[in-house]
């Protein structure tokens, strides 16, 4: 059981994601970027290299200056997404990263630097990020 949000939780998801070869083909695969996760005031930075998520660390606000983009939601919305993924063994169409991005006034993915090239990595690798969060269905999450 890993508590969300925590490095332990992201590490547990990483382990499932990195060990699942089925998400490395069919539109998934190589993904090279550094993505921030802003859960209310808590910030985590995930590093994706090749077919793996190689690192997850807790960070501070300043770290968001350096990431390619970050996903920003209040804790309640993160919890709802993760619970939905757990219930459905993957996000239903109301809880995909794409839908959440469309439904939030300022979008889900954003950046401090405003570099479109880096921000658009969210869409270029969207399936990989979705596969990553869908992998959380296979761990036990405590909120």
């Amino acid at each position: 059981m890993a508590k969300f949000p925590s490095v332990r939780w992201f590490d547990a998801v990483r382990e499932v994601f990195n060990g699942d070869e089925s998400v490395q083909g069919g539109g998934g695969g190589y993904c090279n970027c550094v993505a921030g996760m802003k859960v209310g005031k808590d910030i985590f930075v995930l590093t994706f290299e090749g077919v793996e998520c190689t690192d997850a660390v807790k960070a501070d606000d300043a770290a968001l200056d350096d990431v390619d983009f970050y996903l920003d939601m209040p804790p309640a919305d993160w919890r709802e997404m993760i619970a939905n993924i757990h219930t459905n063994n993957g996000a239903d169409r109301h809880h995909t990263l794409n839908t959440l991005d469309l439904e939030r006034e300022d979008g889900l993915a954003t950046s401090h630097h405003g570099d479109q090239y880096r921000e658009d990595l969210f869409f270029r690798y969207n399936q990989t990020f979705q596969y990553f969060f869908n992998a959380s269905a296979r761990i036990r999450t405590d909120f």
Binding site: G27, N98, D120, F123, R124, N126, Q127, Q130
Partner: peptide
Amino acid sequence: YEHVLQDKARLLT
């Protein structure tokens, strides 16, 4: 839709 979107994102880039 999601996979075509991802391919299109490369063209956009």
